[in-house]
Design a binder for these strands. Structure first.
Lengths: 202, 202, 202, 202
DNA sequence: AATGAATGAGGCTTCATTCAT
DNA sequence: GATGAATGAAGCCTCATTCAT
């Protein structure tokens, strides 16, 4: 039984088309960046006329922001949903790492778009807010781990950024074909990053 | 014996102007990216006419490649020069980390341009080769450290990319104002990254 | 015997909708001109979908011509209906002036559209013919007045155009807020225009 | 001996080209209006590439405003220069009328552009100010004539607008081929308009 | 060598019109 | 009839590049 989709103006066909535009845009933006991508390229990728894009987005900037928010929201939601609230910190870290890895491997272009490109130029305020949601969550986890004395005392933000950076570096190397990422490698990397922040006591 | 500089003599004035163009370009590219920057903007930044740029670079693409190589070469040379060949691995790591930090802090725009932007689109083959010089060097160091059993056994490339990624993440957070980077913080981050790859024995 | 209205019957609803389209178009054309007005704007003003307009008019040009003819016909009909055929010329002039003033004041947008805009671009032949109906009638009146030696001998057309132009100038100044138009002012202007053409004898 | 033209950046060639653009634009705007004219049409008329226009005007709107001010200023200057300050009012009126007629006949397109089109849409504030300069001057003349009891008492603005409107009506009829304008006709029309506002005493 | 006006292709966006629903 | 999504030509404007001075 199909659920009575949405308000009205967004029929299934409308949503599908909108998504296909976002997909095509993602493909282009990852390859050539926002400024390097022409609207007709995206339209061709989505199999529609250039003008049609403007039925779904008022401008190229609005489109890139919608794309950014779509995927930034998606990844944040996955991490938050998967997070094992009551589990030991070490497990929380592992789950979070795995969730992000799973996402990045199953949506490589989305991840590349989100994390490998500089967006300062065209993101609006709402998007900028989302930018930091995930990091804020990660910082919270690190901070609690510090309180439990399982993670080094010191700048929470710095530790979190190191781990996040390492994760992105790993993924970038993967896309570029410089490192494989089988299950062992993933676990190995995860452990290394934990070691980076873990409090090592005698 | 230094070879007699290229096909044609380059006067000091010529070199200076060329550099001022590259500086202006750097400024623009960091802010708006390659595709988002117009040649006249760069010319204005350099205090010259737009047409003059074409006396120094045959095209916008050639210019961005020259810029990329200039700074990628600069950072590589610094790291190589500073590298303490005979010192213990732990010291080598520290020196390398510090050298890169010093560079990134004293040339923030150059570092941002090199590491925070996606260049796939316009880099030529020669630039692409340079892209990996530093990482190759880092990988070599890690490999030797593995042989000395001071760094975890496993994928050398992966370990190196994690450290590099963490470094970039730290720097990005610094530019964005999310973390401070005083001497203590720098040392703290360096130690954390060493812990990530170090072989912890009982 | 009136012919049985065109090829197809027009229901009241059809006529109403057609009128509401013309009203909305009038509003837009006065503000931004024909070329400056988009069909969807008119549709929105009429509270219908853009495509619907094409059930009533085959094209934007056809619509603007219909609009022009509607109002040009309306004003002509009023003047002709009100015209006191047997009255003295001075009275005829006064009635005609008043009729036009009444129309212009009660349908300001229609008058502005008709007389304050340049239509050369898009009017078809049929509309162009109507353009001059009123002036021809005015010219006829002036000519008879000349025959009665109450109006200066000389170019009938020129006298008529002067009066018409003065009338339009007065109205334009009124729309623009530069002159008030109470009953006294209207009478004052009418007298001035009569003086312009009247034959003043010693 | 050529005078040392202008500041610098406006060389003779530059000025000429700018003028040729304005001339071409005038031609187009008179025929099809501002919104009905495409930049490439103007460029073709001026014999240059479309992009070149943007070296002389930052936008189409800026261009139409420059055009408006150029001609509005020209006509105002002519009228003011020709005005016989100490002469009898009747002569002042005649001179002003003739000056405007001469201008309108020798620059028909400029006059048509200025007075036969609706500009509300795209004129900026500075242009709007110029719009009324000439009328203000005319109103002043009328007011003094009223003080001398040679022109009817009553709304100065209204009288002036009637005359101005009559003048425009005459010119429009001339362009449209409905009235000739030889010297006799011009004098005839001028006298008629004077009669419109003159105070007729027994 | 330096300039900056000129070019014209190409970018983003609008819009009259069509057509499947 | 009514709708409004879709189209694609065309509009305004930008910009890498050239070239006469």
């Amino acid at each position: 039984m199909p659920k009575p989709t949405r308000t009205r103006r967004r029929t299934d066909a409308t949503v599908d088309r909108r998504e296909s535009i976002l997909d095509a845009a993602l493909e282009c933006f990852v390859l050539r960046g926002f400024h390097g991508t022409a609207i007709p390229e995206i339209a061709k990728g989505a199999g529609i006329a250039a003008g049609t894009i403007y039925h779904y987005f008022p401008s190229k900037e609005a489109m890139v922001n919608a794309l950014f928010r779509k995927w930034k929201g998606e990844i944040a939601q996955r991490v938050l949903t998967a997070f094992p609230a009551g589990a030991p910190v070490r497990d929380q870290f592992r789950v979070m790492w795995r969730t992000m890895t799973d996402f990045a491997l199953s949506h490589p272009r989305a991840f590349a778009f989100l994390e490998l490109h500089h967006h300062q130029d065209y993101l609006d305020d709402e998007s900028r807010v989302m930018e930091n949601n995930l990091k804020d969550f990660g910082a919270l986890m690190v901070m609690r781990a510090q309180q439990e004395e399982q993670v080094k005392p010191g700048s929470t933000a710095l530790l979190m950024e190191l781990v996040f950076g390492a994760f992105i570096g790993m993924m970038r190397a993967h896309w570029d074909g410089r490192v494989e990422l089988n299950a062992d490698q993933q676990a190995f990397a995860e452990q290394a990053c934990w070691d980076a922040i873990a409090l090592h006591r005698p």
